[in-house]
Design a protein around this nucleic acid. Structure first.
Ligand SMILES: [Mn+2]
Ligand SMILES: [Mn+2]
Ligand SMILES: [Zn+2]
Ligand SMILES: [Zn+2]
Lengths: 144, 144
DNA sequence: CCGCGAATTTAGACACTGTCTAACCCTCAC
DNA sequence: GTGAGGGTTAGACAGTGTCTAAATTCGCGG
């Protein structure tokens, strides 16, 4: 299982295309552009920000395609979805297990490597269900 | 510090009014109705569901008032806000420390008492910030 | 080269949640 | 009664995301 976190910021378009292919995603021009925006910055971006970045030089990708593509990337587990801000979903190119600080004043999101948090005993899951992952969000605010 | 979890489902209107007063909330008719919906059921309800319940017998409270009131309840720390479903915020009348199971298939939310989860070492917070709380969401899906 | 079906992209209409405004209502003090 | 202030309201509005139907592009066999 290849992992996206091996990507370097300067990764070439060809590598991006390969990454998509390894995740069973047909690397169209638009999909490569969107993946590039996500993996070059390696930040937590909203759909809106992605649309802006992709179309910064000149309009080349529609809103519908960006939403379609993000959903596809999610299905193929190339990226993660974070539901933290009530107004917008943000997408996380880092699919390794990790958690987040969320500054309630600024909205800023910061990664926390999974090894920095140790969870003791997980409680018994509701009957008939299995775990699909654990999300931990530590809300922070400016000191004093 | 009085706590809302001492409320019983059958709690009378008068008690609800007292609860609001203890939280420095002027108990108007609409606010009592909304609090009753929240604390009688003690479930996680969306604004939409609250509007429906409050106006089930006959229309008596506007959308604007429900949103205004929920925001007021939040400020006064009478309820909590949960950002888990991308489509709607849900409100939690249980303000004691606890976490949640989230069934990704059904959208169902279930409480996890805080003592059922032990967090080891918290990572160092970003400089200049203090913790404002920790939210843990265990996503689950139907087994097999 | 064609030609054709499937996959992809697109503009714009649409749905949904939540916010805002400006008028209105209600109570209470004077 | 009057005025002030808090509370409520309808409905317009905004932001985010979805859907549809048409257009474009792609892959591929002939
Ligand atoms: Mn480009
Ligand atoms: Mn009523
Ligand atoms: Zn992250
Ligand atoms: Zn809860």
């Amino acid at each position: 299982m290849e992992s996206s976190q091996t990507l370097k910021p300067g990764m070439a378009k060809e590598s991006i295309a390969d990454l998509l292919r390894r995740h069973e995603i047909n690397p169209t021009h638009q999909r490569v552009e969107i993946a590039q925006v996500l993996f070059e910055r390696c930040e937590h971006l909203s759909a809106d920000q992605i649309i802006s970045h992709v179309n910064a030089r000149f309009a080349e990708t529609s809103k519908a395609t960006v939403y379609n593509t993000l959903k596809l990337f999610l299905e193929k587990k190339l990226i993660r979805e974070l539901i933290i801000d009530p107004n917008k979903v943000v997408y996380d190119p880092n699919t390794t297990p990790h958690h987040h600080f969320y500054d309630v004043a600024t909205g800023r999101l910061t990664d926390i490597p999974a090894d920095n948090i140790r969870i003791g005993t997980l409680p018994a899951l509701p009957p008939g269900t299995v775990s699909d992952g654990v999300d931990i969000i530590i809300r922070t605010r400016p000191a004093a």
